[in-house]
């Protein structure tokens, strides 16, 4: 007779195996040392910035940058946010924070929207000269911004967006397009052609297929691109400096101004606090979306 019971996992008893001993080999020690050095390279300056921003100037004057604060104070942070001078205005870096948000949102929408649609068209539709276009786009990715900056400023003046939030957003969108388009195109190339064929037979509409089928399948890659763009737009200095008007300078520009324009004694603690305040938003995004970021980068195939 066949023993049916044996194959039932609830009845069957499994042997317990002892865990295998983990060996610490020479190569794993080398890797650990290397990684620790890499981490320290970033972590030690970061530590100095954080502790300095929490000290008062009396302690900073002694010069021991590694010591912990004797008196813990948040005063430098308040001053940096509210009072520090940038040029002639003394309202802290908070103006820059709101300006950066004002720049970030239209720039994100414009750059991601433009690149996603271009990538979708290049990957899934029969576009004439698609290969040539992609090649030119890819070449454009290697042109340094500084080279085309002055013509761009003149052009943005002609279309009357120079010095506005939209001017900055358009420049961000144009400069991000080569890389983002390639990312989107490569992601959409992996969508099974039969899904696309089915959609062409069902609807046939370029925008309807994009909106209803393709966009909902783009969650992973959207998060990758979102993180890339938020970081690069927020951390940008040059575009904000050259294309932003008086009232639309991003946080990085305000920060630089405020550090440069200190009179008399250099208030290191306020500078450090202002720098940290400027760096926080992209960091937060990494912490919140980091998990999806890794998933998005590794997500290859889409299973239907």
């Amino acid at each position: 007779m066949t023993e049916i019971v044996a194959s039932n996992p609830e009845v069957r008893e499994f042997k317990s195996y002892p865990p295998k001993p983990r060996k610490l080999t020479g190569s794993s020690i080398a890797i650990l040392v290397f990684l620790t050095m890499c981490a320290a390279f970033v972590a030690i300056p970061l530590y100095v910035i954080i502790v300095t921003s929490l000290k008062d100037m009396a302690q900073i004057r002694f010069g021991d940058i590694f010591s912990l604060p004797e008196v813990w104070t948040l005063e430098p942070w308040r001053v940096a946010w509210d009072e520090v001078c940038s040029g002639v205005t003394c309202e802290g870096v908070k103006i820059g924070f709101f300006n950066s948000i004002m720049i970030l949102i239209p720039s994100l929408i414009l750059s991601i929207g433009l690149s996603a649609v271009t990538g979708y068209a290049l990957a899934l539709w029969n576009v004439k000269w698609a290969g040539t276009f992609l090649f030119i786009l890819f070449t454009a990715a290697f042109v340094p911004f500084q080279i085309i900056m002055i013509p761009l400023i003149i052009m943005s003046g002609i279309i009357k967006v120079y010095g506005t939030v939209w001017g900055v957003a358009i420049v961000h969108a144009v400069l991000a397009m080569p890389l983002l388009t390639l990312i989107f195109r490569n992601y959409y190339k992996d969508i099974p052609s039969e899904i696309m064929n089915a959609a062409i037979m069902d609807s046939g509409s370029f925008w309807k297929i994009f909106g209803e089928i393709i966009l909902p399948m783009s969650g992973n890659i959207m998060i990758v691109v979102l993180i890339l763009q938020i970081t690069s737009i927020w951390n940008d200095f040059l575009i904000g400096l050259t294309f932003g008007g008086i009232g639309t300078k991003p946080m990085t520009v305000i920060l630089a101004n405020s550090v440069i324009t200190s009179r008399g004694e250099v208030t290191y603690n306020v500078d450090m606090a202002a720098a940290l305040l400027t760096a926080i938003p992209p960091l937060l995004i990494y912490f919140v979306l980091g998990k999806f970021f890794v998933q998005g980068i590794t997500a290859g195939a889409i299973k239907g």
Binding site: P192, E194, I195, A198, P216
Partner: peptide, 13 residues
């Protein structure tokens, strides 16, 4: 109307 080998269903719908 066409039926495909891999079904080609829209995964998010």
């Amino acid at each position: 109307a066409m039926v495909f080998q891999s079904y080609a269903l829209y995964p998010t719908k």
